[in-house]
Write a protein that binds this DNA or RNA. Structure first.
Lengths: 333, 333
DNA sequence: AAACACAATGTAATCGATTACAAACCCTCA
DNA sequence: TGAGGGTTTGTAATCGATTACATTGTGTTT
């Protein structure tokens, strides 16, 4: 930089100003500086700027597992806005090991990031609160209930209720639910939505019909196995994720039964492969990319010190009717 | 830091040394310093260190598209090693817009990253060479042929040849190939492998039987359509990716034909969903995570200035026989 | 022409660590 | 005891920008 200053016959202060506050420098000298910059092929050292300004223009996204399409979609939305606004995105894949979050928290303490988006909220509200006091933090797509941490979520309860009601409307009365990990609030909410749908339709809630595992295909497969072993298996299953649904369907087929004829299935997430799966999954589509975008926007506002009027952004999921629920069969009749 | 120094009654130099070069400090004073650090709850400012050391311990991974499972798997491997070795991973999703790569190159020029892994090599060898001169760079899983840039790749030619030969061994003589974007060297190599397999088995290469698009389901669907329109459609298709294969199969089914009975399919990548797809895909499994790991290891060596004896790391893909090729039918006969 | 306001530039401190070099200290051995 | 060698610590320069404050320049008004 001092070379540039010398070359343009000005001080380093002027060079810096020419770049950072062009309005405070005479057009003429600005041109001289610019010329010197190109002549010397100078690029500013961002590290020095960051040190001085005490900001990194970098945010950290904590992901439970990148290989899950739900998170890649969110990430995609986050990345889009981040890029547009000049932020870089650090990837924090914790691979389901919650403890690793703490490692990443150090990044912040050491001023390596300006803010953080957590794609998993498997932390106690207490810890989250502490964190949020230390740095701008946004949680998506899992909410942290009553904490003051800003969240961007789907209306899990309502969406699940609609999903379940869709099955009920197709005539099912013996409905099961395969839930995700019940320590996650999104899983709890989806279960709650299922329960409400039953309740409002006068169907008794039977905890035997609720199985919980994680959100994977394998879990869906295993839990469905349990359900098939019952004396009177369910005629429909609302699954807390598309992967669970795929696993469940796979198991049902292996059992020699047909989806949706024998057992109807509804999933959740509208993952990339859900439309090409056979039968194509009926599912609740979360606007994941949009949610990613919104999270980043909220985070940016937070980092800029804006106090937001709203702290919780709730999206609603769309019911996408494909084949696995059997609705298309009904119409034919 | 100066607070810590004062509290421990030493100079800042000693504090720094106690942390960075513990061996050069008396055990006793090191303890004093450590005590002071905990007492004052001090965390070092990494920015300052980076400025002084001129390194960021951060690498950039340029991804064509995070939502593709192939790249998430690679990323997962990269991230694992990076974490273990104390590197942070910046995500550079270019969303298939090659021009965006240039934006990211600035990150490097501004010393914001120590190295870079490109998951796409859609740049001229010339540019790549320039880049590699400027900073440690590794390319995976697409090679840049003769450039001096280190690459971690699968043996695309050999793997594709084996995939095709598998179909030939099942009795097919009219084999098509749906390729990826032909400007990518991986696509070219896979086509070449297909061609060699034909050649070595005395089957005439017919360019009518080769269709190219990109690696997506949609492309597979569309290209398969073309093949089905032929007077004598192929009896087997080797697809350059699993997504292509899934699209192709979808189209075949829509056409009223069966896979593998009427048309046999082999894919490439062994993407997460390929085993659950129906029919389960026979495919070439790339050791993606391992390749990600290796890329990161090579990059680290590069960043540490090691001159590697080997510049190209070639993995071989495993043929995973499932249903879509029809091998299981043959056995039954 | 003097006085004042405002614009443009320069000087130098600053961010917070790392490290070359210098100084102080402690042994050991003649 | 004092010289020499090694260890431990301190002093201060350094990384490269940003910016508060000081200074100089320019223009307008009376």
């Amino acid at each position: 930089m001092s070379d540039v200053a010398k070359y343009a016959n000005v001080s380093t202060a002027t060079v810096s100003r020419a770049l950072q506050h062009p309005e405070s420098v005479k057009e003429e000298t600005r041109q001289k500086v610019l010329a010197a910059i190109t002549a010397l092929n100078y690029t500013p050292n961002v590290l020095a700027r960051q040190l001085r300004r005490m900001e990194t223009k970098t945010i950290l996204v904590v992901v439970p597992n990148i290989e899950n399409n739900v998170f890649s979609q969110l990430l995609s939305g986050i990345d889009a806005v981040a890029n547009q606004k000049g932020y870089k995105v650090l990837l924090g894949n914790i691979n389901h090991k919650v403890d690793k979050i703490y490692d990443y928290l150090d990044h912040f303490r050491q001023r390596q990031i300006d803010g953080m988006i957590m794609l998993i909220s498997d932390l106690s509200d207490h810890i989250l609160q502490d964190l949020a006091n230390e740095l701008p933090l946004v949680i998506t797509p899992d909410s942290s209930d009553d904490a003051i941490v800003p969240t961007v979520v789907v209306d899990n309860v309502g969406s699940s209720q609609r999903a379940t009601e869709h099955l009920i409307s197709l005539g099912h009365r013996r409905l099961a639910h395969i839930a995700g990990p019940l320590h996650l609030s999104s899983s709890k909410s989806r279960l709650e939505g299922y329960r409400q749908a039953l309740h409002e339709n006068g169907i008794r809630f039977d905890h035997e019909l609720v199985k919980a595992g994680d959100f994977t295909i394998q879990a869906g497969f295993k839990q469905m196995e349990q359900l098939l072993l019952m004396e009177v298996p369910p005629t429909a299953v609302f699954c807390a994720s598309d992967e669970i649904a795929m696993g469940a369907i796979k198991r049902i087929k292996q059992h020699g039964l047909k989806v949706p004829e024998d057992i109807a299935i509804v999933g959740f997430d509208n993952v990339k492969f859900s439309s090409i799966f056979e039968p194509a999954l009926t599912t609740m589509a979360q606007p994941l990319e949009e949610m990613g975008r919104q999270s980043m926007k909220v985070l940016i506002d937070r980092m800029n010190g804006k106090t937001l009027s709203k702290n919780h952004f709730i999206y609603s999921a769309d019911l996408i009717i494909r084949e696995s629920c059997g609705a298309h069969l009904n119409k034919r009749e």
